[in-house]
């Protein structure tokens, strides 16, 4: 009897998931950081595809658009006062933390998603910023993890944007997610979640590539792939400019 009930619930859940599907698109899948890059924005839009009207008594439909940037380890250092001055003493490597993370949604996250679903879909900073092993010789290692969240939030890299997604007639939605000027190169992921009654109904995922463009890219590659040529070139350009300046001013004065 109980087994039947679970199977039935499972099928019902599956049925709901099929009943509403998200179709979404992005204004751009490729962001190029060029010389005059001053931040950008990604416009995410989409629609909810339905085969049948939503079951009566179901909660309102909510939409979450989440963009997460290149994930990697971060070295966090803590200062301590040593002989009167502040010195970096303890150091902890936070194993995984995204560089950029923005959550744009119709309502605040906790109102539209249960704790379990946040964990299952890795939504929210508590699942994205992680400390795998905690060093024993350091007091309060989790403060280091929290400082990553705090510092990156202060820099505008971690953003919660509740109420920014516009949802029309429970069908059409759009949002413009701002990307800051201090963006870095890497692979980003954009995810769209439809939720009802604090559970994920359907989701969509796509990639955004952020690359340096034009001259910036050329300079960066040269500096890292051929540092000697780059160094010599830097000196040559500096000498050239210094010489040109001297020549110009000598001409002006005479």
């Amino acid at each position: 009897m109980r087994g039947w009930l679970i199977a039935l619930m499972f099928l019902a859940a599956l049925g709901v998931a099929r009943a509403e599907e998200v179709v979404a698109g992005l204004s751009q899948n490729q962001v190029s950081i060029t010389a005059f890059f001053d931040g950008s924005e990604i416009f995410v839009f989409g629609a909810v595809k339905r085969e049948a009207p939503p079951p009566p008594g179901a909660g309102p439909l909510q939409v979450l658009v989440s963009i997460v940037g290149p994930v990697g380890p971060v070295t966090v250092r803590r200062k301590e006062r040593v002989a009167g001055i502040w010195v970096n003493t303890d150091e902890v490597v936070v194993d995984r933390a995204p560089y950029f993370y923005a959550n744009a949604s119709t309502v605040p996250l906790r109102e539209m998603l249960s704790h379990t679903d946040q964990m299952r879909h890795r939504i929210g900073l508590q699942w994205l910023v992680g400390l795998r092993g905690t060093p024993e010789d350091i007091a309060n290692p989790f403060d280091f993890r929290d400082s990553v969240v705090r510092l990156r939030s202060n820099q505008g890299l971690y953003r919660q944007l509740p109420g920014t997604v516009r949802l029309l007639e429970d069908t059409l939605f759009d949002v413009s997610v701002p990307l800051p000027a201090n963006l870095v190169e890497g692979d980003y992921t954009a995810r769209v979640f439809l939720t009802r009654d604090r559970r994920v109904v359907d989701s969509f995922e796509t990639n955004i590539t952020v690359r340096r463009g034009g001259l910036e890219d050329w300079i960066y590659r040269l500096a890292h792939d051929h540092p000697l040529i780059y160094g010599v070139l830097s000196v040559a350009l500096a000498l050239g400019l210094g010489w040109a300046a001297a020549a110009v001013f000598r001409y002006v004065r005479s």
Binding site: G72, K79, I85, W86, R150, L151
Partner: peptide
Amino acid sequence: DLVVTPADLYSLTGQM
């Protein structure tokens, strides 16, 4: 700046 308590005691290194 060396003596006064910094605004945040923590700092991050490595862009990634």
